[in-house]
């Protein structure tokens, strides 16, 4: 998964988009559904290979990491850390809902236990679960267009009864020009804003446009000083990706 998948998942776009779900009968319903469909199409690909930089800021520290990510569809991904040197060669593999990690310093592959899935991933404001979770907007949420301005649509996403997502509500702003998300706000059940993800700096990669800067801002008071920025420096979509990346052996093999 990693990056592509996580990207997609984070924003809840990752779907292999099959048949449109049952639509609510609101006046905007068709509109919202269409919008999300296009967004998903624009963010989605059969495969993705990316290079990216992640900057994690807290009240007192700032760290930069570089990594590359390979993914196929929605449920397989592989990430390798390139920088800093101390962490170079650490690899992550996610297949379906499980996650493994290889650490060259200890020459060990570790399966991340369920109890750790909600812990922070590499100290960032993303959790392990964000990377693994296969939830998808089309399957897990009902969509409703809240507002339309000159530049953006605002779509409200409410989890369906069956969706195993912690959020009570997500509000996504979508750029009319690119049909890509600009901001995604995550709320709890009491409508309290928990975190906000902003996508900016849209650039062309081959035949598609893609947001290259993501900013995650936690909104809970105790984490208010934190933020995580991901910048995508290079991306290739829909190229052939070697299946051998998505095995446990790859963790060690591609670590070097």
């Amino acid at each position: 998964m990693l990056f592509k998948k996580s990207l997609i998942k984070l924003a809840l776009f990752g779907l292999v988009w099959a048949v449109a779900p049952v639509l609510p009968l609101s006046a905007f319903a068709d509109g919202a559904d269409e919008i999300i469909k296009k967004v998903e199409h624009n963010l989605n690909g059969k495969t993705a290979v990316m290079e990216l930089t992640m900057v994690v800021k807290t009240k007192r520290t700032e760290r930069t990491m570089k990594m590359e990510s390979y993914s196929i569809g929605n449920n397989k991904s592989f990430i390798k850390i390139l920088y800093p040197g101390k962490d170079k060669g650490i690899t992550f593999l996610t297949v379906d809902n499980s996650m493994w990690q290889y650490v060259p310093r200890i020459e060990k592959t570790i399966k991340i236990p369920t109890s750790m899935m909600l812990q922070s991933w590499m100290g960032s404001d993303f959790s392990n679960d964000d990377l693994v979770n296969e939830s998808s907007i089309s399957e897990d949420y009902t969509q409703k267009l809240l507002e339309e301005t000159d530049k953006e649509y605002r779509v409200e996403l409410l989890p369906t009864e069956d969706a195993a997502v912690v959020w009570g509500k997500i509000i996504m702003a979508v750029s009319k020009m690119y049909y890509l998300p600009t901001t995604v706000q995550y709320f709890d059940e009491e409508d309290m804003l928990i975190r906000e993800l902003a996508y900016t700096d849209i650039k062309p990669f081959g035949d598609r446009f893609y947001p290259t800067r993501w900013l995650m801002l936690p909104k809970e008071p105790q984490k208010a000083a934190n933020k995580t920025i991901i910048e995508i420096s290079n991306a290739v979509f829909d190229a052939e990706v070697d299946e051998s990346y998505f095995t446990k052996r790859a963790l060690k093999r591609y670590s070097k």
């Binding site: 807290t58 520290t61 760290r63 200890i106 060990k108 570790i110 922070s120 100290g123």
Partner: peptide, 14 residues
């Protein structure tokens, strides 16, 4: 072996 995070949130393992 252990993996965890250092005081600067960096990755720690040994």
């Amino acid at each position: 072996a252990f993996v965890g995070s250092g005081a600067d949130y960096s990755f720690a393992a040994d």
